Simulated assay, not measured.
Amino acid sequence: MPKINGNEIKPGNILEHDGGLWAAVKVGHVKPGKGGAFAQVEMKNLRDGRKLNERFRSDDKVEKVRLEQKDQQFLYEDDGMLIFMDSETFEQTQIDAELLGERRPFLQDGMIATVEYYEEEALNVSLPQKVTCTVEDTEPVVKGQTAANSYKPAVLDNGVRITVPPFIATGEAIIVNTDTMTYSERA
């Protein structure tokens, strides 16, 4: 595994630190008036979800871990575990549903998601960036309401509440960005 300097850490990097695997969530570079510069890194443990704030000086060496990514098909959920299948080997993998957090409702049956592995252990799931959903309930369209920044609340077919532009009606299919959980465009 490659070693990188403490000032080369970027958000999204996976680091081996204190005997665990950590994802860098936020990185801030600080140059105090006295002493050397350092990177203030907020990290999240990939195995148990703990958070940690750590300072790395530029001469500190950290192990950068490369995760293997495989596209796998979501089959079903069973007792809080998501079951994915490799399309080539038909091997099934179980992943804790809590890994997805608030993005869990966007995972649809048969959807292809990217599962990240460290050796043989599945650590993370990345959903497609854009998912098509149907608007279940929203206020009716008001003619002549064309204000650029006015959004109205809507409930999607998966139960998630987002805001949509005023021209979107109930029953319409829209594309939602799963990273920001916001309306992207009409389907």
Rank of each mutant, 00 (worst) to 15 (best):
I112Y: 14
T114K: 15
Y151E: 07
K70Y: 01
V30G: 07
P2Y: 04
K51G: 01
Y118G: 00
M1N: 12
A169V: 10
S87N: 13
S184C: 13
Y76G: 07
A154G: 05
G171W: 15
G28C: 04
Q69M: 10
E88R: 11
L21E: 01
K61A: 06
R55Q: 05
R104Y: 03
D48R: 10
I168N: 06
V125K: 04
E42M: 11
K143I: 06
E91C: 08
F167V: 12
Q92C: 07
E120W: 12
T132F: 07
L82Q: 01
I9R: 01
N149F: 10
D137V: 10
I4L: 08
R47F: 03
G12K: 02
R47G: 00
M181P: 08
P2A: 07
T132D: 09
V115K: 04
Q40Y: 03
V62N: 03
V131D: 06
E77F: 07
N158Q: 10
V160A: 06
R57K: 04
R50K: 14
N158M: 12
R66M: 00
V25M: 05
Y151K: 09
K26S: 13
V65D: 01
G110C: 10
Y183R: 03
M81W: 08
A39W: 00
F56Y: 06
L107G: 01
S184H: 15
G12M: 02
K130G: 10
V25W: 02
K51C: 00
F167L: 11
A154S: 05
I4M: 07
Q129E: 13
F167D: 13
F74H: 13
E121W: 09
N149L: 07
E77L: 12
F56Q: 01
M111K: 11
K26F: 12
L100S: 10
C133R: 14
E120I: 05
T163E: 12
V25Q: 03
H17A: 02
D179S: 12
P105Q: 10
T114R: 14
K152I: 13
V125G: 01
K31W: 09
K10M: 12
E63L: 11
K64R: 14
Q92A: 07
E68G: 00
N5Q: 13
D48P: 06
E116M: 12
E185K: 15
E102R: 15
A122M: 04
N45T: 03
T178V: 14
P140C: 08
V176K: 02
T132S: 12
G28E: 08
L107E: 01
E102Y: 08
M43V: 09
N158R: 10
G20V: 03
E8I: 04
A148R: 09
F167H: 15
E121I: 08
D179M: 10
S126M: 14
R104I: 11
D78A: 09
I112L: 15
A154T: 02
E88K: 12
N53V: 04
P165L: 11
V125Y: 02
E42Q: 09
E54W: 03
L46H: 02
S150P: 00
